[in-house]
Write a protein that binds this DNA or RNA. Structure first.
Length: 261
DNA sequence: ATGTCCTGGATACCAGGA
């Protein structure tokens, strides 16, 4: 069972890229971020034609998240709990094949310091709290998405000082990511590729893709009940090199065990 | 500081977000 996360950076603008990747890699479940489409503008017909069911939460202009699945996902949430007036479409959750899939688009947080960075940190705190609650219930959970965090500055970003003041590299969000790991959420790409430079995002600016100036921002975290099932993990880098590509590439995990309905 | 890509609102570019 292959579960992937892909910041598509406008699902309608890059629909051809998405469909090409789906037909080539055949993920069973896909978490999408940055749909940049209103709920009614989600390209459901094309996604169904490609063999997927979907649940999604759209928003005009910004954000937007979706979960695609070869078997019908059972929607469990369309927002992250813990805030009364958070209108931003950054979280959707569904059960697929006995696994809870949390699809995450964590706030970018720039510029920092400032209110956007504060929002990033409070959103992250809400995520940690919700993750604890789900873990306590003993269900297998995958938290997959664009966390907008570079976990380890020595290996998850190309050698540079350019991002030193950026919200993606600050100690506060990195400490929160580390806390999730301490609480049993396995960083599956890192677990399968210790010591290896892995990137999932390359800025459009300054030929970052051509120079492999990447950052690892997209993560798939597994709670305890899934650790033993982790078979493989990787990044579909080729997607970033296609015409009209998103600035992110898909990241994925392969889990052992039957794909059950 | 720069660079890219895209949207939206006010135009016939520019601000803003990522």
């Amino acid at each position: 069972m292959k579960i992937a996360t892909f910041n598509i950076n406008n699902v309608n603008k890059r629909l051809a890229n998405l469909l090409a990747w789906l037909s080539s890699e055949h993920p069973d479940v896909v978490c999408l971020q940055e749909l940049k489409a209103e709920t009614r503008s989600f390209p459901l017909a094309a996604i169904e034609d490609a063999g997927y069911h979907a649940v999604w939460q759209g928003q005009r202009t910004w954000n937007g998240v979706a979960i695609l699945s070869r078997k019908p996902p059972v929607l469990t949430r369309r927002a992250l709990p813990g805030a009364k007036n958070d209108e931003q479409a950054r979280y959707i959750e569904a059960a697929v094949s006995g696994i809870i899939i949390g699809c995450i688009y964590l706030p970018n947080g720039n510029p920092q310091p400032g209110p956007k960075f504060d929002y990033k940190l409070s959103w992250f705190d809400r995520l940690i709290k919700h993750a604890r609650g789900m873990d306590k219930e003993g269900l297998p959970v995958v938290l997959a998405g664009d966390f907008n965090v570079v976990p380890d500055l020595s290996i998850d970003i190309y050698p540079t000082r350019s991002w030193d003041k950026d919200a993606l590299t600050q100690p506060q969000p990195r400490a929160r990511f580390a806390l999730l790991q301490q609480e049993g959420w396995l960083d599956s790409l890192r677990a399968k590729h210790p010591g290896e430079r892995l990137y999932t995002y390359w800025d459009y600016k300054r030929q970052r893709w051509e120079r492999n100036g990447g950052l690892r921002l997209d993560h798939l975290l597994l709670n305890g009940p899934l650790h033993k099932r982790l078979k493989a993990a990787g990044v579909d880098r080729w997607v970033r090199g296609e015409e009209g590509a998103s600035d992110h590439a898909p990241a994925w995990v392969e889990l052992r065990g039957k794909w059950k309905s």
